[in-house]
């Protein structure tokens, strides 16, 4: 086995499709959202013009938002499936080791220590990115709801929450986009083009370089027979719960989108007697 180069699965097909949906919705949200944050700039106006005007830009933004929300619901359900039914290890959870890894990486980069930190299935950088997406998406959905439904919001919350939500929506968006074009772009495209999100696989070398602990664990792991009966039992419980949860969430999305009619479509015209000769 020593000379045979193996490849190691990293993302299954569903995850890759999920990621594609995220690429699509995130990109569309960014290119329709950023010019709305900077409408007084030439590039902002140029993008809006290219997108077919501000109303169409907003329509694309809203549609993409729905795609992203539905994707998020799916992600929750699928994570739940893995955690509750298949009981896989929750390797994405951050821990103290991640902080140590980050510090050691810096030390290694500055040649203060000789070897890089050994990391598992998800490096600290990947965890930062994942949880940033989780947190950012939550913020964006909540503030997006406020902006989409300002009248409903102001029934429960002070009116100032609406411009505040706008500020947070824009700030968080800027943070997300800048993170993607720096951290994500550098780590998976520039430093080394990591194709696993498209191919599903990492090479042995890539595993060695980036996930040595996972590699070691997988090399060492014994084939454990799966308790098929117990799995099916858990699945029978989980699937109805997940379907119900998803339905509730999807209904919420529908509610989100159609909650209120914020404004009338046409501003009422004043009818003025134009020709009224003076007495």
């Amino acid at each position: 086995m020593s000379q045979i180069v193996k490849r190691y699965s990293r993302f299954d097909r569903a995850q890759r499709i999920e990621h594609l949906a995220l690429i699509l919705s995130f990109t569309l949200l960014s290119i329709t959202g950023l010019p709305q944050k900077y409408p007084d700039t030439g590039w902002g106006q140029g993008m809006i013009w290219l997108l077919g005007g501000i109303e169409l830009t907003r329509l694309i933004h809203h549609t993409s938002a729905i795609v992203m929300i539905v994707g998020s619901i799916y992600h929750l359900a699928s994570v739940g499936y893995r955690v509750f039914v298949r009981r896989v290890q929750m390797s994405m959870l951050p821990g103290w080791k991640d902080v140590v890894d980050a510090v050691q990486t810096l030390g290694y980069n500055f040649r203060l220590i000789n070897s890089p930190p050994q990391m598992g299935r998800y490096t600290f950088g990947e965890k930062v990115e994942y949880w940033a997406v989780i947190w950012g998406t939550l913020i964006m959905i909540l503030t997006g709801f406020v902006l989409w439904n300002p009248i409903a919001t102001s029934r429960l919350l002070p009116g100032e929450f609406i411009p505040a939500a706008k500020a947070a929506h824009g700030g968080e968006a800027l943070l997300a986009v800048l993170s993607i074009v720096t951290w994500h772009l550098y780590n998976v495209h520039i430093k080394h083009f990591n194709k696993s999100m498209f191919s599903g696989w990492l090479s042995h070398h890539e595993m060695e370089e980036e996930h040595p602990l996972e590699l070691a664990a997988r090399e060492m792991a014994q084939e454990v027979p799966v308790d098929v009966k117990a799995l099916h039992q858990r699945r029978r419980v989980y699937i109805p719960v997940a379907v119900l949860f998803s339905l509730v969430m999807l209904v919420s999305v529908y509610f989100f989108v159609t909650f209120e009619v914020t404004a009338i479509t046409t501003v009422p015209r004043q009818t003025i007697e134009v020709y009224a000769p003076a007495r």
Binding site: V5, K6, R7, Q89, W201, E223
Partner: peptide, 20 residues
Amino acid sequence: GAKTTKEKSPRQEDEKGDAE
């Protein structure tokens, strides 16, 4: 590392790894 990692195209797939 560059010297030691002359890769060949993968012949054998790791079917067991689907760990999260």
